[in-house]
Amino acid sequence: MTIDFRHSQSAHCENGSTSNLLRYYGVDISESLAFGIASGLFFAYMPFMKHNNLAATSFRPLPGMIFKRTAASLGIKIYRKKFRSKEASMTALDQALDQNIPVGLQVGVFHLTYFPRPYRFHFNAHNLVVYGRENGQYLISDPVMENVESLTYEDLMRVRWARGMFEPRGQMYYPVEVPAEIDLPRAIIRGIRKNCRDMLSIPFPFFGVKGIRYVSRDIKKWPEKLGEKKAPLYLGHFIRMQEEIGTGGGGFRFIYASFLQEASKILNKPRLRELSQAMTEVGDRWRDFAVIAGRIIKKRNSDAETYPAMSAILSEIADREHLIFSELKKTIP
């Protein structure tokens, strides 16, 4: 039994499963739109919170937010459930598939058999869509993979019950009610406004533009504070959060720029296209930052490629993003 589901690759798994699931119900929104409507751009740096002894860093909101916010903003009702037992979670999945419902799942990647092995960490906030069952195999549309995949019952159950941080506990989700009229402009405006608040107005120094300034100050001290061995590990962790599968490059800045470009057309606001270009330039600066970091990690950095140099780039990025979001706020009051 297969559902006529179109697999379309995306940069980020949750944007992708959101956009692919919504498209199945006739709500044709791109990955960038899903990301922007969900106010997906973020930054958090919390050095007091350690993950594998490395400072917690994030370029995205908490897992699950993209689908939740996008659906809420578009007036789409969703079903979302976590389970107590493994078997119950599989039965619920089978029942949904029997009713021709493609199902979004949160899974861990450590045991995800088709996932590239070098990327199989204990990361439990991956998303995919199951769109059928055939010869004892579940058919999988994993948004970050070029092609569709398949998993056995046991393998699928295992990744749905991954343990550790962000345990999925079999979590599954799908849209249940889609309104006849979708008010896309309203959803876009709300998404931009919230993103301006997240980047500019959270009253703690760890989040948004303030968080970027915080790293910019902190990173200069890493070599002294952490030592020659640990400082590059911090850098590596930071770069992985920024660039690893799922960000579309530059810590989601390019996806957001693509969103602003689409928003400019839909809202008929040329100013958004200009801000999109500014956002692209910031994304390029994040990449410049990563190039220096990569060379330091490989011990191939030139004399100019130093921690203070990275600090200066981050400080410039903070200034630019402050300006962009302030301008966005003016454009979408």
Partner: peptide, 19 residues
């Protein structure tokens, strides 16, 4: 904006290999 496929990027490869 267009979507483009990439087979990898040196700085990010370095970070992953370092891990």
């Amino acid at each position: 904006y267009v979507q483009v496929l990439s087979s990898g990027w040196a700085p990010k490869n370095a970070a992953l290999l370092q891990a």
